[in-house]
Design a protein around this nucleic acid. Structure first.
Lengths: 230, 230
DNA sequence: CGGGATCCGTAAAGATACTG
DNA sequence: CAGTATCTTTACGGATCCCG
Protein backbone atom coordinates (compact mmCIF):
# COMPACT_ATOMS: atom_id res chain seq x y z
CA UNK A 1 0.00 0.00 0.00
CA UNK A 2 2.61 2.44 1.06
CA UNK A 3 4.59 1.39 -1.98
CA UNK A 4 3.46 0.75 -5.48
CA UNK A 5 3.84 -3.01 -5.43
CA UNK A 6 5.61 -6.00 -4.05
CA UNK A 7 8.99 -5.42 -5.71
CA UNK A 8 9.05 -9.00 -6.91
CA UNK A 9 9.68 -10.11 -10.47
CA UNK A 10 7.55 -13.24 -9.93
CA UNK A 11 4.55 -13.33 -12.28
CA UNK A 12 2.25 -14.08 -9.37
CA UNK A 13 3.38 -10.86 -7.72
CA UNK A 14 3.03 -8.89 -10.94
CA UNK A 15 -0.49 -10.20 -11.49
CA UNK A 16 -1.42 -9.73 -7.84
CA UNK A 17 -0.46 -6.08 -8.07
CA UNK A 18 -3.10 -5.73 -10.76
CA UNK A 19 -5.96 -7.94 -9.61
CA UNK A 20 -5.54 -8.38 -5.85
CA UNK A 21 -6.20 -4.85 -4.75
CA UNK A 22 -9.35 -4.16 -2.84
CA UNK A 23 -12.59 -4.48 -4.88
CA UNK A 24 -10.74 -5.19 -8.10
CA UNK A 25 -11.79 -8.82 -8.43
CA UNK A 26 -15.41 -7.82 -7.94
CA UNK A 27 -15.15 -5.09 -10.55
CA UNK A 28 -13.82 -7.72 -12.95
CA UNK A 29 -16.63 -10.08 -11.97
CA UNK A 30 -19.16 -7.42 -12.96
CA UNK A 31 -17.40 -6.66 -16.22
CA UNK A 32 -17.16 -10.38 -16.94
CA UNK A 33 -20.90 -10.65 -16.38
CA UNK A 34 -21.45 -8.15 -19.13
CA UNK A 35 -21.89 -4.89 -17.25
CA UNK A 36 -20.31 -2.00 -19.12
CA UNK A 37 -21.60 1.26 -17.63
CA UNK A 38 -20.25 3.09 -14.63
CA UNK A 39 -23.51 3.34 -12.76
CA UNK A 40 -24.43 -0.26 -13.53
CA UNK A 41 -21.11 -1.30 -12.07
CA UNK A 42 -22.04 0.71 -9.00
CA UNK A 43 -25.29 -1.19 -8.62
CA UNK A 44 -23.37 -4.44 -8.47
CA UNK A 45 -20.84 -2.93 -6.05
CA UNK A 46 -23.06 -0.90 -3.73
CA UNK A 47 -20.49 -0.50 -0.94
CA UNK A 48 -17.70 0.65 -3.21
CA UNK A 49 -17.25 4.40 -3.36
CA UNK A 50 -17.53 5.95 -6.83
CA UNK A 51 -14.12 7.54 -6.39
CA UNK A 52 -12.49 4.17 -5.82
CA UNK A 53 -14.40 2.59 -8.69
CA UNK A 54 -13.21 5.34 -10.98
CA UNK A 55 -9.65 4.88 -9.77
CA UNK A 56 -9.77 1.11 -10.24
CA UNK A 57 -11.14 1.44 -13.75
CA UNK A 58 -8.26 3.71 -14.65
CA UNK A 59 -5.75 1.32 -13.11
CA UNK A 60 -7.24 -1.61 -15.00
CA UNK A 61 -7.17 0.36 -18.21
CA UNK A 62 -3.54 1.20 -17.58
CA UNK A 63 -2.81 -2.46 -17.01
CA UNK A 64 -4.44 -3.36 -20.32
CA UNK A 65 -7.19 -5.40 -18.71
CA UNK A 66 -10.09 -3.21 -19.80
CA UNK A 67 -10.65 -0.68 -22.54
CA UNK A 68 -12.78 2.39 -22.22
CA UNK A 69 -14.76 3.30 -25.29
CA UNK A 70 -15.99 6.87 -25.27
CA UNK A 71 -18.62 7.54 -27.88
CA UNK A 72 -18.86 11.18 -28.84
CA UNK A 73 -22.48 11.74 -27.86
CA UNK A 74 -23.02 8.65 -25.76
CA UNK A 75 -22.03 7.34 -22.39
CA UNK A 76 -18.67 5.71 -21.82
CA UNK A 77 -18.45 1.95 -21.80
CA UNK A 78 -15.95 -0.38 -20.21
CA UNK A 79 -15.07 -3.69 -21.83
CA UNK A 80 -12.62 -6.44 -21.03
CA UNK A 81 -9.69 -6.76 -23.39
CA UNK A 82 -8.25 -10.13 -24.38
CA UNK A 83 -6.09 -9.98 -21.28
CA UNK A 84 -9.17 -9.23 -19.21
CA UNK A 85 -11.17 -12.06 -20.69
CA UNK A 86 -8.29 -14.35 -19.77
CA UNK A 87 -9.03 -13.50 -16.14
CA UNK A 88 -12.57 -14.83 -16.24
CA UNK A 89 -11.61 -18.47 -15.63
CA UNK A 90 -9.61 -17.31 -12.64
CA UNK A 91 -12.58 -15.43 -11.22
CA UNK A 92 -14.76 -18.47 -11.80
CA UNK A 93 -12.21 -20.61 -10.00
CA UNK A 94 -12.13 -18.19 -7.08
CA UNK A 95 -15.91 -18.28 -6.93
CA UNK A 96 -15.94 -22.06 -7.05
CA UNK A 97 -13.42 -22.15 -4.22
CA UNK A 98 -15.56 -19.81 -2.17
CA UNK A 99 -18.65 -21.83 -2.87
CA UNK A 100 -16.88 -24.97 -1.74
CA UNK A 101 -14.91 -23.81 1.27
CA UNK A 102 -16.67 -20.82 2.79
CA UNK A 103 -19.34 -21.75 5.28
CA UNK A 104 -22.79 -20.77 3.90
CA UNK A 105 -23.68 -19.59 7.39
CA UNK A 106 -20.99 -16.95 6.98
CA UNK A 107 -21.99 -15.80 3.51
CA UNK A 108 -25.68 -15.79 4.48
CA UNK A 109 -24.70 -13.25 7.11
CA UNK A 110 -24.06 -10.72 4.35
CA UNK A 111 -27.53 -10.17 3.01
CA UNK A 112 -28.33 -7.31 0.70
CA UNK A 113 -31.76 -7.09 -0.91
CA UNK A 114 -30.78 -4.64 -3.61
CA UNK A 115 -27.76 -6.66 -4.60
CA UNK A 116 -29.76 -9.88 -4.67
CA UNK A 117 -32.48 -8.39 -6.83
CA UNK A 118 -29.97 -6.83 -9.21
CA UNK A 119 -28.19 -10.15 -9.51
CA UNK A 120 -31.42 -12.09 -10.07
CA UNK A 121 -32.55 -9.59 -12.68
CA UNK A 122 -29.40 -10.14 -14.65
CA UNK A 123 -29.61 -13.91 -14.65
CA UNK A 124 -33.35 -14.39 -14.93
CA UNK A 125 -34.28 -16.63 -17.82
CA UNK A 126 -37.48 -15.54 -19.64
CA UNK A 127 -37.60 -18.74 -21.74
CA UNK A 128 -39.62 -20.87 -19.30
CA UNK A 129 -42.08 -17.99 -18.79
CA UNK A 130 -45.27 -17.31 -20.73
CA UNK A 131 -44.74 -15.39 -23.95
CA UNK A 132 -46.26 -12.16 -22.69
CA UNK A 133 -45.46 -9.47 -20.17
CA UNK A 134 -45.07 -10.97 -16.68
CA UNK A 135 -44.85 -8.99 -13.47
CA UNK A 136 -43.50 -10.58 -10.32
CA UNK A 137 -43.45 -8.85 -7.00
CA UNK A 138 -40.89 -9.91 -4.42
CA UNK A 139 -41.61 -9.04 -0.81
CA UNK A 140 -39.20 -9.18 2.13
CA UNK A 141 -41.47 -8.30 5.05
CA UNK A 142 -38.66 -8.04 7.58
CA UNK A 143 -36.66 -5.54 5.55
CA UNK A 144 -36.83 -1.76 6.02
CA UNK A 145 -39.35 0.06 3.90
CA UNK A 146 -37.28 1.00 0.87
CA UNK A 147 -35.97 -2.54 0.48
CA UNK A 148 -39.18 -4.40 1.21
CA UNK A 149 -40.90 -4.60 -2.15
CA UNK A 150 -39.45 -5.20 -5.62
CA UNK A 151 -41.03 -5.67 -9.02
CA UNK A 152 -39.50 -7.60 -11.84
CA UNK A 153 -41.10 -6.97 -15.21
CA UNK A 154 -40.32 -9.41 -17.97
CA UNK A 155 -41.30 -8.39 -21.46
CA UNK A 156 -40.72 -10.73 -24.41
CA UNK A 157 -38.97 -8.00 -26.36
CA UNK A 158 -37.89 -5.41 -23.78
CA UNK A 159 -36.06 -7.89 -21.60
CA UNK A 160 -36.05 -7.90 -17.82
CA UNK A 161 -36.61 -4.80 -15.73
CA UNK A 162 -36.22 -4.25 -11.99
CA UNK A 163 -38.15 -1.61 -10.02
CA UNK A 164 -38.15 -0.72 -6.37
CA UNK A 165 -41.33 1.31 -6.83
CA UNK A 166 -44.63 -0.04 -8.05
CA UNK A 167 -44.60 0.20 -11.85
CA UNK A 168 -48.39 0.04 -11.82
CA UNK A 169 -48.93 -3.17 -13.77
CA UNK A 170 -51.08 -6.05 -12.54
CA UNK A 171 -48.94 -8.54 -10.67
CA UNK A 172 -48.88 -12.12 -11.98
CA UNK A 173 -47.00 -13.62 -9.05
CA UNK A 174 -46.33 -12.53 -5.49
CA UNK A 175 -43.17 -13.96 -3.91
CA UNK A 176 -42.79 -13.52 -0.20
CA UNK A 177 -39.92 -14.76 1.94
CA UNK A 178 -37.30 -13.45 4.25
CA UNK A 179 -34.18 -12.22 2.54
CA UNK A 180 -32.08 -15.01 3.92
CA UNK A 181 -34.33 -17.67 2.41
CA UNK A 182 -34.40 -15.99 -0.98
CA UNK A 183 -30.62 -15.58 -0.95
CA UNK A 184 -30.14 -19.22 0.03
CA UNK A 185 -32.31 -20.29 -2.91
CA UNK A 186 -30.31 -18.05 -5.21
CA UNK A 187 -27.05 -19.51 -3.97
CA UNK A 188 -28.25 -23.09 -4.36
CA UNK A 189 -28.23 -23.80 -0.64
CA UNK A 190 -32.01 -24.13 -0.68
CA UNK A 191 -34.63 -24.81 -3.38
CA UNK A 192 -37.96 -23.24 -4.27
CA UNK A 193 -39.73 -26.51 -3.54
CA UNK A 194 -38.13 -27.13 -0.18
CA UNK A 195 -38.54 -23.55 1.02
CA UNK A 196 -42.18 -23.50 -0.07
CA UNK A 197 -42.94 -26.82 1.63
CA UNK A 198 -41.29 -25.60 4.81
CA UNK A 199 -43.27 -22.36 4.75
CA UNK A 200 -40.21 -20.16 4.38
CA UNK A 201 -41.36 -19.11 0.91
CA UNK A 202 -44.89 -18.12 -0.02
CA UNK A 203 -46.00 -17.98 -3.66
CA UNK A 204 -49.34 -16.52 -4.65
CA UNK A 205 -50.41 -16.10 -8.24
CA UNK A 206 -50.39 -17.85 -11.55
CA UNK A 207 -49.93 -21.59 -11.24
CA UNK A 208 -47.62 -21.92 -14.25
CA UNK A 209 -45.23 -19.24 -12.99
CA UNK A 210 -45.14 -20.94 -9.61
CA UNK A 211 -44.43 -24.37 -11.02
CA UNK A 212 -41.61 -23.11 -13.22
CA UNK A 213 -40.12 -20.67 -10.76
CA UNK A 214 -36.95 -22.67 -10.13
CA UNK A 215 -36.40 -22.74 -13.88
CA UNK A 216 -36.88 -19.07 -14.72
CA UNK A 217 -35.27 -17.83 -11.54
CA UNK A 218 -32.14 -19.82 -12.19
CA UNK A 219 -29.21 -19.72 -9.83
CA UNK A 220 -26.30 -17.46 -9.20
CA UNK A 221 -23.60 -18.08 -11.84
CA UNK A 222 -21.37 -19.13 -8.96
CA UNK A 223 -23.78 -21.58 -7.41
CA UNK A 224 -22.61 -24.25 -9.81
CA UNK A 225 -19.73 -24.71 -12.22
CA UNK A 226 -21.08 -22.58 -15.05
CA UNK A 227 -19.80 -19.89 -17.32
CA UNK A 228 -20.35 -16.23 -16.69
CA UNK A 229 -22.39 -14.45 -19.35
CA UNK A 230 -20.87 -13.94 -22.81
CA UNK B 1 -10.67 -1.30 4.62
CA UNK B 2 -12.75 0.66 6.96
CA UNK B 3 -15.05 -2.32 7.14
CA UNK B 4 -14.32 -5.98 7.45
CA UNK B 5 -15.30 -7.07 3.99
CA UNK B 6 -17.41 -6.45 0.94
CA UNK B 7 -20.81 -7.24 2.46
CA UNK B 8 -21.67 -9.44 -0.47
CA UNK B 9 -22.95 -12.99 -0.29
CA UNK B 10 -21.33 -13.83 -3.64
CA UNK B 11 -18.72 -16.59 -3.32
CA UNK B 12 -16.23 -14.49 -5.26
CA UNK B 13 -16.55 -11.77 -2.66
CA UNK B 14 -16.28 -14.24 0.20
CA UNK B 15 -13.16 -15.79 -1.28
CA UNK B 16 -11.69 -12.40 -2.16
CA UNK B 17 -12.01 -11.34 1.46
CA UNK B 18 -9.71 -14.22 2.35
CA UNK B 19 -7.17 -14.34 -0.46
CA UNK B 20 -7.18 -10.89 -2.09
CA UNK B 21 -5.78 -8.89 0.77
CA UNK B 22 -2.35 -7.44 0.33
CA UNK B 23 0.52 -10.00 0.34
CA UNK B 24 -1.80 -12.91 0.96
CA UNK B 25 -1.47 -14.52 -2.44
CA UNK B 26 2.29 -14.40 -2.14
CA UNK B 27 2.20 -15.95 1.31
CA UNK B 28 0.15 -18.77 -0.19
CA UNK B 29 2.58 -19.07 -3.07
CA UNK B 30 5.41 -19.62 -0.60
CA UNK B 31 3.42 -22.14 1.42
CA UNK B 32 2.43 -23.89 -1.80
CA UNK B 33 6.10 -24.11 -2.73
CA UNK B 34 6.75 -26.03 0.45
CA UNK B 35 8.02 -23.35 2.82
CA UNK B 36 6.75 -23.93 6.34
CA UNK B 37 8.80 -21.79 8.73
CA UNK B 38 8.19 -18.17 9.62
CA UNK B 39 11.65 -16.93 8.80
CA UNK B 40 11.79 -18.89 5.58
CA UNK B 41 8.53 -17.25 4.57
CA UNK B 42 10.16 -13.94 5.33
CA UNK B 43 13.05 -14.74 3.00
CA UNK B 44 10.61 -15.24 0.16
CA UNK B 45 8.72 -12.06 1.12
CA UNK B 46 11.54 -9.67 1.95
CA UNK B 47 9.45 -6.48 1.74
CA UNK B 48 6.65 -7.76 3.93
CA UNK B 49 6.86 -6.66 7.54
CA UNK B 50 6.96 -9.48 10.09
CA UNK B 51 3.98 -7.96 11.84
CA UNK B 52 1.87 -8.20 8.73
CA UNK B 53 3.10 -11.70 7.97
CA UNK B 54 2.14 -12.79 11.45
CA UNK B 55 -1.27 -11.19 11.07
CA UNK B 56 -1.89 -12.80 7.69
CA UNK B 57 -0.92 -16.23 8.98
CA UNK B 58 -3.43 -15.87 11.78
CA UNK B 59 -6.12 -14.74 9.37
CA UNK B 60 -5.42 -17.65 7.05
CA UNK B 61 -5.52 -20.05 9.95
CA UNK B 62 -8.84 -18.56 11.02
CA UNK B 63 -10.17 -19.01 7.49
CA UNK B 64 -9.15 -22.67 7.53
CA UNK B 65 -6.63 -22.28 4.74
CA UNK B 66 -3.53 -23.13 6.76
CA UNK B 67 -2.87 -25.03 9.95
CA UNK B 68 -0.19 -24.17 12.45
CA UNK B 69 1.54 -27.13 14.02
CA UNK B 70 3.37 -26.29 17.21
CA UNK B 71 5.71 -29.05 18.30
CA UNK B 72 6.55 -28.96 21.98
CA UNK B 73 10.31 -28.65 21.64
CA UNK B 74 10.47 -27.62 18.01
CA UNK B 75 9.70 -24.61 15.90
CA UNK B 76 6.19 -23.91 14.66
CA UNK B 77 5.30 -24.92 11.16
CA UNK B 78 2.63 -23.71 8.78
CA UNK B 79 0.98 -26.06 6.34
CA UNK B 80 -1.80 -25.73 3.82
CA UNK B 81 -5.03 -27.52 4.68
CA UNK B 82 -7.16 -29.21 2.05
CA UNK B 83 -8.88 -25.89 1.45
CA UNK B 84 -5.47 -24.25 1.07
CA UNK B 85 -4.20 -26.88 -1.35
CA UNK B 86 -7.31 -26.19 -3.43
CA UNK B 87 -5.97 -22.66 -3.92
CA UNK B 88 -2.75 -23.81 -5.59
CA UNK B 89 -4.27 -24.18 -9.07
CA UNK B 90 -5.64 -20.66 -8.72
CA UNK B 91 -2.23 -19.29 -7.82
CA UNK B 92 -0.70 -21.14 -10.74
CA UNK B 93 -3.36 -19.67 -13.02
CA UNK B 94 -2.64 -16.19 -11.70
CA UNK B 95 1.07 -16.75 -12.33
CA UNK B 96 0.40 -18.01 -15.83
CA UNK B 97 -1.72 -14.96 -16.52
CA UNK B 98 1.04 -12.69 -15.27
CA UNK B 99 3.62 -14.50 -17.34
CA UNK B 100 1.45 -14.11 -20.43
CA UNK B 101 0.14 -10.58 -20.07
CA UNK B 102 2.58 -8.54 -18.00
CA UNK B 103 5.32 -6.96 -20.04
CA UNK B 104 8.68 -8.55 -19.12
CA UNK B 105 10.18 -5.08 -19.27
CA UNK B 106 7.97 -4.19 -16.33
CA UNK B 107 8.73 -7.26 -14.24
CA UNK B 108 12.44 -6.98 -15.02
CA UNK B 109 12.27 -3.58 -13.38
CA UNK B 110 11.76 -5.29 -10.04
CA UNK B 111 15.06 -6.96 -9.52
CA UNK B 112 16.09 -8.39 -6.19
CA UNK B 113 19.27 -10.42 -5.90
CA UNK B 114 18.43 -12.05 -2.59
CA UNK B 115 14.99 -13.07 -3.77
CA UNK B 116 16.34 -14.45 -7.02
CA UNK B 117 19.01 -16.50 -5.27
CA UNK B 118 16.55 -17.82 -2.71
CA UNK B 119 14.19 -18.81 -5.47
CA UNK B 120 16.91 -20.47 -7.53
CA UNK B 121 18.14 -22.34 -4.49
CA UNK B 122 14.71 -23.82 -3.96
CA UNK B 123 14.27 -25.02 -7.51
CA UNK B 124 17.81 -26.06 -8.35
CA UNK B 125 17.98 -29.62 -9.63
CA UNK B 126 21.07 -31.53 -8.43
CA UNK B 127 20.37 -34.48 -10.76
CA UNK B 128 22.25 -33.18 -13.82
CA UNK B 129 25.23 -32.27 -11.61
CA UNK B 130 28.25 -34.42 -10.77
CA UNK B 131 27.69 -36.76 -7.86
CA UNK B 132 29.91 -34.86 -5.44
CA UNK B 133 29.89 -31.53 -3.66
CA UNK B 134 29.67 -28.66 -6.13
CA UNK B 135 30.20 -25.01 -5.29
CA UNK B 136 28.97 -22.32 -7.64
CA UNK B 137 29.64 -18.67 -7.09
CA UNK B 138 27.26 -16.12 -8.59
CA UNK B 139 28.54 -12.60 -9.05
CA UNK B 140 26.55 -9.49 -9.84
CA UNK B 141 29.26 -6.87 -10.26
CA UNK B 142 26.88 -3.93 -10.48
CA UNK B 143 25.11 -4.74 -7.22
CA UNK B 144 26.00 -3.17 -3.86
CA UNK B 145 28.54 -5.04 -1.79
CA UNK B 146 26.33 -7.24 0.35
CA UNK B 147 24.35 -8.45 -2.65
CA UNK B 148 27.24 -8.88 -5.06
CA UNK B 149 28.48 -12.40 -4.37
CA UNK B 150 26.55 -15.58 -3.60
CA UNK B 151 27.57 -19.19 -3.14
CA UNK B 152 25.41 -22.16 -3.84
CA UNK B 153 26.68 -25.40 -2.34
CA UNK B 154 25.15 -28.59 -3.64
CA UNK B 155 25.88 -31.73 -1.65
CA UNK B 156 24.56 -35.09 -2.81
CA UNK B 157 23.10 -35.79 0.62
CA UNK B 158 22.80 -32.38 2.35
CA UNK B 159 20.83 -30.79 -0.45
CA UNK B 160 21.26 -27.25 -1.69
CA UNK B 161 22.61 -24.44 0.44
CA UNK B 162 22.79 -20.72 -0.21
CA UNK B 163 25.38 -18.40 1.36
CA UNK B 164 25.98 -14.71 1.00
CA UNK B 165 29.38 -15.07 2.64
CA UNK B 166 32.23 -17.20 1.34
CA UNK B 167 31.80 -20.68 2.81
CA UNK B 168 35.46 -21.36 2.16
CA UNK B 169 35.21 -24.24 -0.29
CA UNK B 170 36.92 -24.33 -3.66
CA UNK B 171 34.62 -22.96 -6.33
CA UNK B 172 33.77 -25.26 -9.25
CA UNK B 173 32.02 -22.65 -11.35
CA UNK B 174 31.97 -18.86 -11.42
CA UNK B 175 28.83 -17.28 -12.86
CA UNK B 176 28.97 -13.59 -13.60
CA UNK B 177 26.20 -11.48 -15.08
CA UNK B 178 24.16 -8.48 -14.29
CA UNK B 179 21.13 -9.15 -12.15
CA UNK B 180 18.74 -8.37 -14.95
CA UNK B 181 20.28 -10.97 -17.23
CA UNK B 182 20.24 -13.65 -14.57
CA UNK B 183 16.63 -12.86 -13.69
CA UNK B 184 15.62 -12.96 -17.36
CA UNK B 185 17.19 -16.41 -17.67
CA UNK B 186 15.37 -17.54 -14.56
CA UNK B 187 12.06 -16.27 -15.92
CA UNK B 188 12.55 -17.93 -19.28
CA UNK B 189 12.85 -14.65 -21.18
CA UNK B 190 16.49 -15.44 -21.96
CA UNK B 191 18.61 -18.62 -22.06
CA UNK B 192 22.02 -19.55 -20.74
CA UNK B 193 23.26 -20.15 -24.27
CA UNK B 194 21.99 -16.90 -25.74
CA UNK B 195 23.18 -14.79 -22.84
CA UNK B 196 26.62 -16.40 -22.91
CA UNK B 197 26.97 -15.95 -26.67
CA UNK B 198 25.95 -12.30 -26.35
CA UNK B 199 28.46 -11.71 -23.57
CA UNK B 200 25.83 -10.89 -20.97
CA UNK B 201 26.72 -14.02 -19.00
CA UNK B 202 30.23 -15.18 -18.25
CA UNK B 203 30.89 -18.74 -17.07
CA UNK B 204 34.29 -19.79 -15.82
CA UNK B 205 34.98 -23.22 -14.38
CA UNK B 206 34.27 -26.85 -14.93
CA UNK B 207 33.19 -27.62 -18.48
CA UNK B 208 30.50 -30.15 -17.49
CA UNK B 209 28.79 -27.75 -15.09
CA UNK B 210 28.80 -25.07 -17.77
CA UNK B 211 27.32 -27.32 -20.42
CA UNK B 212 24.53 -28.53 -18.15
CA UNK B 213 23.80 -25.20 -16.49
CA UNK B 214 20.43 -24.68 -18.14
CA UNK B 215 19.43 -28.14 -16.91
CA UNK B 216 20.46 -27.89 -13.27
CA UNK B 217 19.48 -24.27 -12.93
CA UNK B 218 15.99 -24.94 -14.21
CA UNK B 219 13.43 -22.18 -14.48
CA UNK B 220 11.06 -20.41 -12.19
CA UNK B 221 8.00 -22.59 -11.53
CA UNK B 222 5.97 -19.84 -13.18
CA UNK B 223 8.10 -19.55 -16.30
CA UNK B 224 6.20 -22.44 -17.85
CA UNK B 225 2.99 -24.33 -17.08
CA UNK B 226 4.33 -26.52 -14.34
CA UNK B 227 3.26 -27.59 -10.92
CA UNK B 228 4.50 -26.00 -7.76
CA UNK B 229 6.52 -28.26 -5.47
CA UNK B 230 4.69 -31.01 -3.59
C1' DC C 1 -29.53 11.10 -14.67
C1' DG C 2 -24.94 9.36 -15.86
C1' DG C 3 -20.18 9.96 -14.57
C1' DG C 4 -17.46 11.36 -11.99
C1' DA C 5 -14.18 14.78 -8.43
C1' DT C 6 -13.28 16.57 -3.59
C1' DC C 7 -12.65 16.42 1.28
C1' DC C 8 -11.96 14.42 5.70
C1' DG C 9 -11.90 10.83 9.29
C1' DT C 10 -10.59 6.10 9.94
C1' DA C 11 -8.29 1.78 9.06
C1' DA C 12 -4.51 -0.74 7.09
C1' DA C 13 0.22 -1.24 5.76
C1' DG C 14 5.49 0.11 5.92
C1' DA C 15 9.74 0.78 8.62
C1' DT C 16 12.28 -0.12 12.31
C1' DA C 17 13.25 -1.48 16.81
C1' DC C 18 12.89 -4.65 20.22
C1' DT C 19 11.95 -9.09 23.05
C1' DG C 20 11.34 -14.08 24.93
C1' DC D 1 14.09 -18.25 15.54
C1' DA D 2 9.73 -16.38 15.83
C1' DG D 3 7.49 -13.17 16.42
C1' DT D 4 5.64 -7.84 19.12
C1' DA D 5 5.58 -2.96 19.68
C1' DT D 6 5.55 1.50 17.96
C1' DC D 7 5.26 5.21 14.89
C1' DT D 8 4.51 7.09 10.34
C1' DT D 9 2.62 6.87 5.79
C1' DT D 10 -0.84 5.53 2.69
C1' DA D 11 -5.33 3.85 1.18
C1' DC D 12 -10.04 3.38 1.84
C1' DG D 13 -15.12 4.66 3.22
C1' DG D 14 -18.71 7.91 3.18
C1' DA D 15 -20.69 12.13 2.28
C1' DT D 16 -21.05 15.86 -0.50
C1' DC D 17 -20.70 18.38 -4.57
C1' DC D 18 -20.00 19.26 -9.54
C1' DC D 19 -20.79 19.22 -14.57
C1' DG D 20 -22.72 18.13 -19.19
Amino acid sequence: MAQAGYSQFCPVAMAAEIICTRWTLLVLRELGAGTTRFNDLRRGLPRMSPALLSQRLKELEGAGVIRRSMQVGGPGEYHLTDAGRDLIPIIEAVGAWGQRWVDPEVSLQKLDAQLLMWDMRRNLDPDPMPDRRCVIQFQYPEQPVGLRAWWIVVCPRDGVDLCSADPGHDVDLYVSADLRTMTAIWMGADTVRRAQDAGRLRLVGERGLIDDMQAWLGLSPFARPQKLAS
